[in-house]
Amino acid sequence: MSEALKVPTMAEYMAQGKQPEVLFWVGCAGSFDDRAKKITKAFAKLLNNAGVDFAVLGTEESCTGDPAKRAGNEFLFQMQAMMNIQVLDGYEIKKIVTTCPHCFNTLKNEYPDLGGNYEVMHHTQFLKSLMNEGRLKVEGGKFKGKRITFHDPCYLGRANNEYEAPRELLQKLEVELVEMKRCKTRGLCCGAGGAQMFKEPEKGNKDINVERTEEAIETQPSIIAAGCPFCNTMITDGVKAKEKEASIQVMDIAEMIANAADL
């Protein structure tokens, strides 16, 4: 653990008359869920480390409305969206990065029709661009040569056709990337999307996260890499259900990069 995190808020920036390079949209899971908060911090460390001038909305951030929309509550979604757009536009935000593919998708695809136009990036895309610009060093370190499989988040992959950014980062970590049978366009959902995260599943013969975790375990990985706080929770639960938590870790790519650099 090196120095403390530097995470300024937009309000502070505004008071100083400054505009950050990018807004880090933390998301509800990233703000409140204990596991997801670790991802948030890892990413913030990487931003600090790369010298990115960023800020968060802090207490002014609120749910993008994704779970409401996908549960069918268009009213609540649009209320949330309009309020968020007011806040974002009030701060004249141009560019947003987020560690949650659901926030990413909603901000990027569903806000423009409601008047909110921003350049939105998923954190794996942003990290990739930092790496390409030479601002961020991504090196294997302790992950070098480790067997790792990557679970495509639906809202990053199929929903937005981004399959390569996370894989390029993993490649840079010099891991041995093994793909699951169902990957990329045919990747199997973790079971959390469409507001399923917040309810019990319907009657069936298996939980989706267990089905997905079993497939991941078949590749005999030491780490299952994820790019979404919800996938992370679902697969972590799956690994526990299969009693594999001693041999298999579930980690976000941001955590892996931060970890490799000993941040």
Partner: peptide
Amino acid sequence: AAPWPFNQMDRANWI
């Protein structure tokens, strides 16, 4: 402003 019963004022506590 979150799907869980947390207070919006605690949103930046993680920092």
